[in-house]
């Protein structure tokens, strides 16, 4: 019995290591390709590079206007996430505390339904609308759309969390004469720290990697974010994979720097969202 159990466990651990190698292999291929010359990777896609061609990186950075895209991505992501947190936390608070009223229940239902709305359904009218108000190809327009699209999920997460917070603290703040806005930002908002950090991490990741919204709304070079700029760059450099991979690796650096810090919050955010749903 125990011998059989041990064999089973040994087999399981071996299988997990094998799966881990399969999962990490694409990263390995990306890194070695980025350091090879075209001739070398034509010979073999999986071998280690003979000489490290770091000049791929220098050239890729020059050609892909990486820093402009990085700046656009930073503005797009940071401003969107701040607005998402600011708007949805306060809206969720007022909804969660007034669920006995029909008006607030109505909004709760609307936001819940909007979580399921695919962007494709409103893609054409959004494009037309931003075109008409002259916000097409501006970061401001894309931020507005991204915030509006992200708010429903954030509100849903906040409402679930706020429901579990007792009202006593707010009541006593009210007795001390604090207005509702001050009560929220000084007393309630700090209590939401767990869910706020999860939401910031998730929304940062999703906004940074956004493709759909930027594809439709940011079509000029000056406003392109990293995923979009890479979409174009990869399309142009299919003949030189090494340069394209160097640029891919560079753009992974900010994601994984952030990921290293925020993975814990991303995981807890996903879990909280799933449990509530």
């Amino acid at each position: 019995m125990t011998a059989r159990g041990n064999v089973g466990k040994w087999f399981m651990v071996a299988a997990m290591w094998l799966l881990a190698i399969v999962f990490i292999a694409p990263f390995y291929i990306a890194i070695v390709t980025s350091l090879k010359s075209p001739a070398e990777s034509a010979l073999s896609g999986i071998s280690l590079p003979q000489v490290l061609h770091f000049e791929n990186y220098v050239e890729a950075l020059k050609m892909s206007s990486f820093f402009l895209a990085l700046k656009n991505s930073l503005i797009f992501t940071i401003v969107s996430v701040i607005l998402i947190v600011f708007c949805s936390s306060s809206a969720a608070y007022i909804i969660a505390r007034n669920l006995n009223k029909r008006y607030y229940r109505f909004w709760e239902k609307i936001f819940l339904a909007a979580i399921m709305l695919p962007f494709e359904v409103i893609m054409i009218p959004t494009y037309k609308f931003l075109y008409e108000v002259d916000l097409i190809n501006t970061l401001a327009g894309a931020i507005m759309v991204k915030v509006g699209l992200s708010i429903p999920f954030a509100i849903f997460m906040y409402i679930g969390f706020i429901k579990s917070i007792p009202r006593e603290l707010e009541e006593s703040a009210k007795i001390d004469g604090a207005g509702p806005i001050r009560t929220f930002w000084q007393i309630v908002f700090p209590l939401l720290q767990t869910i706020t950090s999860s939401l910031i991490a998730l929304q940062m990741m999703w906004t940074w990697n956004d493709f759909n919204v930027s594809l439709i709304l940011l079509q000029k070079d000056a406003v392109k974010t990293i995923p979009l700029q890479q979409f174009i760059f990869f399309g142009q450099y299919t003949s030189n994979f090494n340069l394209a991979f160097a640029s891919a690796i560079v753009s992974m650096i900010p994601i994984y720097l952030f990921f290293g810090i925020a993975q814990k919050y991303i995981v807890s955010g996903l879990t909280a969202g799933a449990v509530k749903g």
Binding site: S90, A114, F129, P180
Partner: peptide
């Protein structure tokens, strides 16, 4: 508390929809 959210939601989701 609601207005900022409703503004974004209106222009980005409801009006296009």
């Amino acid at each position: 508390f609601l207005i900022p959210t409703l503004l974004f939601f209106f222009f980005a989701v409801m009006y296009p929809f």
